[in-house]
Design a protein around this nucleic acid. Structure first.
Length: 281
DNA sequence: AATAAGGACAACCGCTCCTAA
DNA sequence: TTTAGGAGCGGTTGTCCTTAT
């Protein structure tokens, strides 16, 4: 049985499988550098590799391709991954486009290990959530009204033109109607990405610059593994056009919002972009 | 010191999408 | 318009290494 055989052995069709040897890498590298990428099934034959085209492509894309970054995912990259995953879900290749030097495989692996961690936190989160909800219910009505007032004022500040925040970049304000429509979509997306969160707790703080946290995962989960802050919502259309418009998707705030937009260019300082966008958490 | 658990990484598999004939 | 082959994508699994017990 092929499936029962280990790696590094020949398959029935004669293709070699398993880890690549330095010699194979050298052959593939030389061939692709000379002929360019593509026609992977030809590569396998012409380069003298006893590998399937798929295997060659994968090896090139994930390991041999020039410009690949090595080493751990940085907190910056981590933040981008979390953000984009909240928007797109498991669209690893799409996410990878915004992380120069990182492959979809790498990001996928990264997410998996972190997702496992998150699953372990679930029980703890549930407990903490219950505590917070209880505290909320017990909060005096007057205090809640004051909080709402404060939130509305913050919204006004955020909705002001942001020429200073996004100089030279496309600004795209969305209407209340659009915001609401988007909210519905995004809430679904976010709910599926963060199933343990309450509707009014979707949030992503930009605390990285404050030095109080070690990573974006720390921010997202907080001390008790509970997500804190505000989650940003990236607009797909603008992502594809290189500029990402951001609309805030706090549930109550979204109903009134004229969302702020800030630009994102791949490889740029992402957290700074948020922070400079006039959004202070 | 031994071993179990977990993390990181590499690679394969099956499916879908794209494109050229 | 259809179809077949190639390419790409996401899910899954295997292996190695490190850390905790």
């Amino acid at each position: 049985m092929v499936a029962m055989m280990g790696w590094g052995v020949a398959e029935q069709q004669g293709w070699r499988k398993g880890p690549w040897t330095p010699e194979e890498d050298k052959l593939l590298n030389a061939y692709v550098n000379f002929h360019g990428e593509g026609r992977w099934s030809c590569v396998a034959k012409c380069a003298g590799l006893n590998r399937s085209g798929k295997s060659c492509r994968l090896r090139w894309v994930n390991y041999l391709r020039p410009g690949l970054k090595r080493g751990h995912i940085t907190p910056q990259e981590e933040g981008i991954i979390i953000e984009l995953h909240a928007l797109w879900g498991n669209k690893w290749s799409t996410i990878a486009r915004y992380l120069p030097g990182r492959t979809d495989n790498e990001i996928k692996n990264f997410w998996r290990t972190h997702f496992k961690k998150k699953e372990k936190c679930t029980l703890k989160q549930e407990k903490r959530k219950a505590q917070i909800l209880l505290a909320k219910q017990q909060q005096p009505q007057e205090q809640q009204q004051q909080q709402q007032l404060q939130e509305d004022q913050n919204l006004k500040i955020r909705a002001t033109p942001q020429s200073e925040a996004s100089q030279g970049d496309n600004i795209n304000m969305i209407t209340d109607h659009e915001a609401q429509a988007r909210q519905e979509n995004n809430m679904d997306l976010i709910s599926s990405s963060y199933p343990n969160l309450e509707g009014d707790q979707y949030c992503l703080p930009a605390l990285m610059n404050q030095g109080s946290v070690g990573s974006w995962a720390d921010i997202l989960l907080g001390d008790e593994g509970l997500y804190m802050g505000r989650l940003w919502n990236l607009d797909d259309e603008h992502v594809n056009g290189r500029n990402i418009s951001l609309s805030q998707c706090n549930k109550s705030a979204m109903q009134n919002q004229a969302a702020a937009v800030t630009a994102f260019s791949s490889g740029g300082d992402y957290s700074n972009t948020f922070y400079n966008g006039g959004y202070i958490f």
